[in-house]
Design a protein around this nucleic acid. Structure first.
Lengths: 185, 185
DNA sequence: TATTGTTATACTCTATAACTATA
DNA sequence: TATAGTTATAGAGTATAACAATA
């Protein structure tokens, strides 16, 4: 109820360039950008900026589908796990149950997903993509791949794989991630 | 007023492990975690998770100083740019001016920073750390370094530098970042 | 006319409590 | 007693409009 939220602790930067100076007060106010050198040595700061950069591109490219990153994530989990329950999605994406309700409702209202009785638990309901949802998800997934390529245009394919592997070692220290997320190590 | 915010577009995941399955509906509800393999191939998803992981550690370790990431960033910019103006901080950290006002007020109320008339612009005021602010920032900076080491414990020093360089190439494609953020290339 | 800093405020996102139906 | 899903709501973060003082 009071803990500063982890997710909202991320700020959103736009175009910091390089403008180091021993004293920023010289000259008129608003001259050049102040030095952020120290912050740029921190993995947290750089990871946040990179994430927000990619998300900015995501929002722009996914706008035609009216899918925010979280909506795409939910659709993706349902697409690859037909019959998955809300509870499972919450656990996988770390969404709190009350906050997922509205998203599922909205996707259902758009006729992208349906809910069917769970085979063995009458409390739960399995989520599935509708044919419309499958079509839209297929296009969205292609767009996501294209957008990722755009976001990482400055990197080689090998560098992208290295980057992903290193990021996983940060947030999932146990797993010795080496590759593309399917097999290997 | 209506555009989905970029910063809040980041969600906060916690402990996704690996539990691929062709159909998640089998078994009782809430069995294992559904497959998130596709999402894990995306730089955006992984960067977000890594950033949130580091931020979680940051919040815990910085709690004694009562500094959120944004507060630490603001203090850091002031510390390394004495006399910097609010406007410059906003530009460097991409904070909107109305949202910085409260932070500056709070830091001032805690006697960590002071505001002095700007030498050449009577509209602006230069921000400076107080001796108290300098002491606290020094400790906070040491804690930030320690916390970064903790957050990247699974990586070698070289891997950390590689990771930072690659992240910079994502959010700052122009700059051929190679090293530690001070000099080089 | 443009900019710095500010107030007020609306909107979005995140988190907690509490309830129901079922296990 | 515990869990899936839900409602309601509190709290934190992000965004825009508009203003006074100064450039």
């Amino acid at each position: 109820m009071s803990e500063p939220s982890i997710a909202n602790a991320l700020r959103r930067p736009r175009g910091v360039r390089k403008a180091a100076a021993p004293d920023a007060a010289a000259g008129a106010a608003g001259d050049g950008l102040p030095d952020t050198g120290h912050l740029e040595t921190l993995v947290g700061y750089n990871a946040r900026r990179a994430a927000l950069s990619v998300i900015g591109i995501f929002l722009r490219r996914m706008a035609p589908f009216e899918l925010r990153p979280v909506d795409y994530s939910v659709l993706s989990v349902i697409a690859h796990n037909p019959g998955v329950t809300s509870r499972q999605i919450c656990a996988a994406l770390d969404i709190l149950p009350p906050n997922l309700v509205g998203m599922v409702k909205a996707l259902q209202r758009r006729r992208l997903i349906t809910r069917r009785p769970h085979p063995s638990d009458r409390r739960a309901q399995g989520l599935h993509l509708t044919p419309t949802g499958e079509r839209l998800y297929r296009e969205a997934q292609a767009t996501a791949s294209a957008l990722e390529a755009e976001a990482t245009a400055a990197l080689t394919a090998d560098e992208v794989q290295t980057l992903i592997a290193l990021l996983r070692k940060v947030y999932r220290p146990g797993t010795a991630a080496t590759g593309n997320g399917d097999a290997a190590v």
